[in-house]
Amino acid sequence: MNTNLEQEFVALLEDNQNILHKICRLYASDVASHQDLFQEMVIQLWRSYPKFKGDSKFSTWAYRVSLNTAISLYRSKRNKISTVDWDQSFANIKYEEYNSEEEEQLKFLYDAVRQLNDIDKALVYMYLEDKDYAEISETLGISEVNARVKMNRIKGKIKEILAKKGIV
């Protein structure tokens, strides 16, 4: 394997790793599945990296491949898998503990998003990342109008989930 390519990729990924973490945060429900999904995304990114021609920014390309991995390729495993031993890095990740009232509210919001289906989560991710509807529609392969319709429905769904918990 080309070591230059590897070095280049590893450096770019290290700088852009938060993209992956943010997606994991929406798709994974605990630290173990966060690690698992993160690893699968890295593998998929690395495999398609030779075809990345720099037509778009690395970050744009990376979030698209990562979202596709979460939606299409990732298979959650029930048993503990052979993830690289990197638990140390994850020592401070938050899935359960929240302190202030505001953080509590955020936790409910994240929980609500995690109850959405895989496609809706992708839309939420792109919405939170401030992507415009043209980009959202291009990433998912749906029309812009439908992306808007879907986004409105998602907002409704989240309201519903929160209402059920008596939050809104």
Binding site: Q39, E40, V42, I43, S72, L73, S82
Partner: peptide, 10 residues
Amino acid sequence: RMLYKSSSSL
């Protein structure tokens, strides 16, 4: 190290 782990993709 992650790059050469085996994928578990669907």
